[in-house]
Amino acid sequence: MTIQEYSDLKDLPYETVRRWIRVLKKERAPKAASLKLVELISQQLVLVQLLPESI
Score class of each variant (00 low, 15 high):
E53T: 15
S54N: 00
S7C: 05
W20Y: 08
E27V: 04
P52A: 08
R19W: 08
Y14L: 05
Y6R: 13
Y14D: 00
K31Q: 13
L47K: 13
T16Y: 13
P52R: 12
V48H: 11
L45R: 09
D8E: 10
A32H: 15
K25P: 11
S34Q: 13
L50P: 03
K25T: 15
K36V: 11
T2P: 04
Q43E: 04
L35R: 14
Y14N: 01
S7D: 00
L40I: 02
I21V: 14
Q4I: 03
K10I: 07
V23Y: 00
P13F: 00
V48R: 07
V38K: 11
S54P: 00
S34Y: 11
L9K: 00
I3G: 02
A29K: 13
Y6A: 01
K25E: 14
Q44M: 12
V17K: 00
Q4N: 14
Q4E: 13
V38T: 10
E15K: 07
K31L: 11
Q49N: 09
P52D: 08
E5D: 04
V48I: 15
D8M: 07
A29G: 03
S7E: 02
V48C: 06
P52W: 12
D11F: 02
L50G: 09
L37M: 06
L35W: 13
A29I: 15
V46N: 08
W20I: 10
M1I: 15
P52K: 14
S34M: 11
W20D: 04
V23S: 03
L37C: 05
Q49V: 12
W20R: 14
L40V: 09
R28V: 07
L45A: 10
V48K: 08
S42K: 02
A32N: 14
E5K: 04
V17H: 01
L9S: 02
R28C: 04
A29T: 09
K26R: 13
Q4G: 13
Y6P: 02
K36S: 10
E5G: 01
L12R: 04
R19Y: 09
L12D: 00
K25W: 12
E53Q: 12
Q4R: 13
P30M: 11
R22M: 06
R22Y: 08
E5I: 00
P30L: 09
L51F: 14
R19F: 07
K26C: 06
D11I: 06
R18K: 05
A32E: 13
E5V: 04
K10L: 04
T2L: 02
A33W: 11
D8L: 12
Q49G: 00
L45E: 08
T16R: 10
S7A: 15
A32S: 08
S54E: 03
L35I: 11
L12E: 06
T2H: 05
R22V: 12
Q49K: 08
E15M: 06
P30K: 11
Q43T: 00
P30A: 11
D8H: 05
S54Q: 03
V38S: 08
V38P: 01
S34D: 13
E15Q: 09
V17T: 04
L37N: 10
L47Y: 05
I55K: 09
R19L: 04
S42N: 12
S34I: 14
Q43N: 05
P30E: 10
T2I: 05
E39N: 12
S42V: 05
